[in-house]
Design a protein around this nucleic acid. Sequence first.
DNA 1: GTAGGGTTATTG
DNA 2: CAATAACCCTAC
Length: 261
Amino acid sequence: MGAPKQKWTSEEEEALRRGVLKHGAGKWRTIQKDPEFSPVLSSRSNIDLKDKWRNLSFSASGLGSRDKQRVPRPKAPSSSPSPSPQLLLLPATNNVAEASPPEDCEKSPQDDKTPSPKFSMILEALGELKEPNGSEVTTICNFIEIDKSYKLTDSYAKRALAPMKDPSLKKKDSAKSSKAAKGQGLFTAASPALGAAEAAATKVADAEAKSHLANEHMMEVERIGKMAEETESLLELASELYERCSRGEVLTILQVAHREF
DNA sequence: GTAGGGTTATTG
DNA sequence: CAATAACCCTAC
């Protein structure tokens, strides 16, 4: 831990998080130039932001779980007949099945073995918030959004070979790539997957303003993490939340975790 | 300007 | 001595 040369302060780190929340991961220069974070990140360059965010993400990958992800030294051993490091580049994005019906709630005793790195990031972020009453759905949705922007764009861009030309419409590009790569039948024509997720965050925020949602802790959040290991599950969850919240319903994290809403 | 890889320095 | 985090260089 730690190698303080010019260690990042809490303010700087929070500014970075907020910047990613606002503009999305990847717009380091936009974040750095933003008048909100300029005074805090004045001493940090856009590259520094990227490096810090990378270190944060990497640390979050092996957090909160017994996931032993040691990096094999990039030095190739002299003579090893096993040139296949079982690295998961893409967590089986073509496996959209596993719809996880609401009946398998208390079943499946054999999970929580390998939480997806995406959710580890979210859990890590939620854990750092350390809200006394637990984290609100808005916060979770925000982090889910970040996650999608950061990881999905990269993955699907490579798969669909769809370079993002328009930086301001990254989400649409991602959604398009997602649909092109898999042909989602879940979200049909109504709303693109990522669009629904974004709308979900907004709608949930609105609903949250009316009445505060329930407060659970890491255990409940972990339950969500178990059932939503895949990004498709995240999108599906966001879509359902969007539908419910659009109708004015108020959902608690517990309900969401048990998927009984 | 961003992403990725590699190197250095500090802490445990 | 190893792991981690900041720093630096290179490629796209």
